[in-house]
């Protein structure tokens, strides 16, 4: 197995008295896809946000490329420039065109020259099949198209790690496919991804590892074949039966 990129060790996150993550430990290798499954409120999203420093953890350590994110000398902006994040609700910038949405990261965060990045951005839009919509504003696009643009916006930063937070949950069933196809495409080309998802078939196809979370506890983790066909814990079995 290749190098460990991300390591969570006994991570605890509380919102006031409510413990949302109760000592989660997890590893992610380069080129690996790990899917987080579990009911809503099980802590999947919070875990992703902690990795991107959108939330600060209360105990434990998160190590990214050998550097502890707890270290006060860590610059969150630098961390985020190397870890892309895609949200359930797309969160595209409505006042910017599709192309500008993709450009904003490289130009405004990495301070690269616009003219140098435009070609790359157009290439990304081609990859997601939306190069003809480059000049349009997000609200003219369907949900699936918006989410694909949001993914392209993250990819424009050339992230070492992509965090995806239930990216198909806000989509029409007929639009889920196009987004999952894009993620499959990314997985094949070796993008390292940590994916919170409710799409079990997708997780089964794409993930190298699947982790089941319940009430802030990582109950069980394993290769998809093993976890889906032969879950070791009752709560995992119950969950899988319910979502089927």
């Amino acid at each position: 197995m290749s190098e460990v990129i991300l390591e969570l060790d006994a991570v605890v996150k509380k919102f006031d008295d409510n413990e949302v993550l109760k000592g989660i430990s997890l590893q992610l290798h380069r080129h690996e896809v790990v899917c987080l499954i579990g009911a809503s409120g099980s802590g999947k999203s919070t875990l992703l946000r902690c990795v991107n420093l959108l939330e600060t953890i209360d105990q434990g350590t998160i190590t990214l490329f050998g550097q502890s994110l707890n270290d006060p000398r860590i610059d969150p902006d630098q961390v985020r420039r190397h870890t892309g994040m895609v949200f359930q609700s797309f969160n595209l910038f409505p006042h910017l065109s599709v192309l500008e949405n993709v450009l904003v990261g490289p130009v405004r965060a990495l301070k690269r020259k616009r003219s140098d990045v435009v070609d790359e951005a157009m290439h990304l839009l081609e990859r997601i099949g939306l190069s003809d919509r480059a000049k349009e504003f997000p609200e003219r696009l369907s949900g699936g198209q918006q989410q694909r643009v949001a993914i392209a916006r993250s990819l424009a930063m050339k992230p070492a790690l992509l965090l995806l937070d239930e990216v198909t949950s806000a989509l029409d069933p007929s639009l889920v496919g196009e987004v999952l196809d894009l993620l499959r495409d990314l997985a094949t080309s070796g993008t390292t991804m940590l994916i919170a998802t409710h799409e079990m078939n997708f997780a089964r196809d794409v993930a190298h590892q699947v982790a089941y979370l319940d009430g802030g506890v990582l109950v069980e983790q394993g290769a998809p074949d093993q976890l889906f066909t032969n879950p070791q814990h009752d709560s995992t079995r119950l969950f899988l039966e319910r979502v089927r």
């Binding site: 959108l54 902006d77 985020r80 420039r81 949200f87 904003v104 965060a109 949001a150 930063m157």
Partner: peptide, 18 residues
């Protein structure tokens, strides 16, 4: 402005001021 806009911008690594 919806909170998601802030999250999306910060997650791209834009500074607070940007």
């Amino acid at each position: 402005v919806p909170h998601g806009q802030l999250l999306a911008a910060r997650s791209l690594g834009l500074t607070n001021a940007t």
